[in-house]
Amino acid sequence: MAEVDARADRRSEGIVINDDWPGYSLDLFSYPAHYSGDLDCVIVPHGVIMDRTERLARNIMDDLGDHDIVVLCVLKGGYQFCADLVERIKALSRNSNHTIPMRVHFIRLRSYLNDQSTEDLHILGAEDLSFLAGKNVLIVEGIVGTGKTMETLLEHVKAFKPKMIKVAGLLVKRVQHSLASVPDYVGFEIPNRFVVGYALDYNEYFRDLNHICIISESGKKKYKV
Rank of each mutant, 00 (worst) to 15 (best):
Ala199Pro: 03
Leu179Arg: 11
Ile143Phe: 08
Val167Glu: 06
Val195Cys: 13
Ala180Gly: 11
Ser130Cys: 08
Arg108Met: 07
Leu121Asp: 02
Asp184Cys: 03
Val182Tyr: 06
Lys173Trp: 03
Leu124Arg: 10
His98Pro: 00
Phe131Leu: 04
Gln116Arg: 13
Thr99Leu: 03
Ser111Arg: 01
Ile165Val: 15
Ala199Thr: 07
Lys158Asp: 01
Ile123Met: 15
Arg193Thr: 13
Lys166Asp: 11
Ala133Gln: 12
Phe194Val: 00
Lys135Trp: 01
Asn210Ile: 04
Asp128Trp: 00
Leu153Tyr: 04
Phe188Lys: 05
Tyr112Phe: 14
Glu141His: 02
Glu151Asp: 12
Ile100Cys: 09
Asp184Gly: 05
Met150Ala: 14
Tyr112Glu: 10
Arg207Val: 05
His122Ile: 12
His177Lys: 15
Ala168Asn: 09
Pro183Lys: 07
Gly142Ile: 02
Gly169Leu: 03
Arg103Ser: 07
Phe160Glu: 03
Ala159Phe: 08
Gly134Arg: 10
Gly169Phe: 05
Leu124Ile: 13
Lys135Val: 09
Val140Phe: 01
Phe188Asn: 06
His122Asp: 08
Asp201Gln: 14
Glu119Leu: 11
Ile190Glu: 07
Asn203Ile: 01
Val175Gly: 07
Val182Glu: 01
Asp120His: 13
Ile190Thr: 06
Ile123Thr: 05
Asp208Cys: 05
Gly169Cys: 12
Tyr202Glu: 09
Met150Arg: 10
Pro162Leu: 12
Asn114Tyr: 13
Leu154Cys: 08
Thr99Gln: 06
Asn192Leu: 08
Met102Asp: 04
Leu153Cys: 01
Ala126Cys: 11
Phe206Val: 00
Tyr205Leu: 04
Ala126Ser: 15
Phe106Ile: 04
Thr99Ser: 12
Pro191Gly: 06
Lys173Asp: 01
Gly145Phe: 01
Ser181Tyr: 14
Ala126Glu: 10
His177Pro: 00
His98Leu: 15
